[in-house]
Amino acid sequence: MVDKKLKSAYDFTWKNMEVGNIVTEPGNASARRTGDWRSDRPILDKNECIKCGFCWLYCPDAAVKQIDDGYFEIDMYYCKGCGICASVCPKKAITMVEEVEE
C-alpha cells in the first residue's frame, strides 16, 4: 500500500530540491494527493451495486479498489472526479455530487 506520509510539494524549499528537479524515487506519484483537484465526488450506492467491477476496470487512475466483501470503494486521496465510473456503471449505482467545502 502507498505510504501517504511521503513528502508533499510543500516540504520542498529551493534548497532541498534535486538538481534539475530530477525525480530519483520511481513511482512516487502515488504519494501525491491528486484528489484535491476534484470538483465532483462519486457516491456509490451499495444497494444497487452488483460487483461487476466496471468502475474498477475503467478508472483511469486506479482509484477504485475491491474490498473484502467484494464491493468496491473509491479512494478519495486520488479520485479526480472524472465521472467515468458513474458513466460506465450498468446499474447507475454511482452518482456524481458536487464537492463542497465542509
Partner: peptide, 12 residues
C-alpha cells in the same frame, strides 16, 4: 529508474 523533465505544478 528516475524521471528527468517532470511536471512542475504551481506549488513547486
Amino acid at each position: 529508474p528516475m524521471t528527468h523533465g517532470g511536471l512542475g505544478q504551481p506549488d513547486i
